[in-house]
């Protein structure tokens, strides 16, 4: 258990870089809020706020040098996601998100992360570059997908003859358990998470030879 400050320099890294990053984040947030407000009034502002929380939290999570701070930034992401669920009138999903992700998983995550010493070489360009390339490619791909399919006019997309009662996010929330199509992926994800958990414990396991060394 090494406290956060044991590494050289301030916890957050170079203060100027920090200021630059968070300034840019604040600017992004302002843009999101104004854009949302102009486009859709009060709900738009709410959406802008939630989007800022989600995206900003995710960015800060990647940016921050201290693992624990990253984990705390994740909280903003979870809360923002929950807010978006609320805006989509999926109340139950939103609350489950908060209860399970913030109250449960994040607390567990912190439990583990707080025991981890900081990795001082984590922000080396050579190490970050590969990840950055993958993330960038993914972002571009998702952006293209969204741009191709999203409807920016604000009007519901209706094929002729269909009534205006589409499946809402609320239904999707319940549908996770009700509709056959989502059950298998859901269970698969659960199995995958369990395997990952067991694997991480296995990796962190102390081997007998380690004791032998320390005892000497």
């Amino acid at each position: 258990m090494v406290p956060a400050s044991s590494g050289p320099g301030p916890i957050g890294g170079d203060p100027n870089l920090q200021r630059l990053f968070y300034g840019a984040l604040a600017l992004l947030g302002l843009v999101a809020l104004v854009a949302g407000g102009l486009r859709a009034g009060a709900p738009g502002v709410a959406f802008g706020l939630m989007a800022l929380l989600t995206v900003g939290g995710a960015l800060a999570c990647v940016w921050e040098r201290s693992v624990v701070r990253s984990a705390f930034a994740l909280m903003a992401t979870f809360m923002g996601t929950a807010g978006i669920f609320v805006l989509l009138e999926a109340d139950f999903l939103a609350m489950a998100q908060v209860l399970i992700y913030v109250g449960g998983i994040l607390a567990l995550l912190l439990f583990g992360v707080m025991l981890t010493p900081p990795d001082l070489g984590e922000r080396k360009l050579t190490r970050v570059l590969g990840g950055l390339a993958v993330v960038g490619a993914a972002t571009i791909w998702i952006g293209m997908q969204v741009a191709g399919s999203a409807n920016f006019s604000g009007q519901p997309v209706l094929t002729p003859g269909e009534t205006a009662d589409p499946v809402t996010a609320k239904d999707i929330g319940v549908g996770f358990l009700a509709y056959d199509q989502y059950v298998i992926p859901f269970e698969l994800a659960a199995v995958l998470l369990t395997v990952a958990l067991v694997a991480s414990v296995y990796i962190a396991r102390r081997k007998r030879s380690d004791y032998a060394e320390e005892r000497r």
């Binding site: 025991l115 102390r206 004791y211 320390e214 005892r215």
Partner: peptide, 27 residues
Amino acid sequence: ASPSMSLDEARVLPSGEREFMLDVRTQ
């Protein structure tokens, strides 16, 4: 660390319960 008890064995409490220690690398 100088482990006071053998970490790969479960400690048997006087009441008869067995106490396990998780075998995770810690400092």
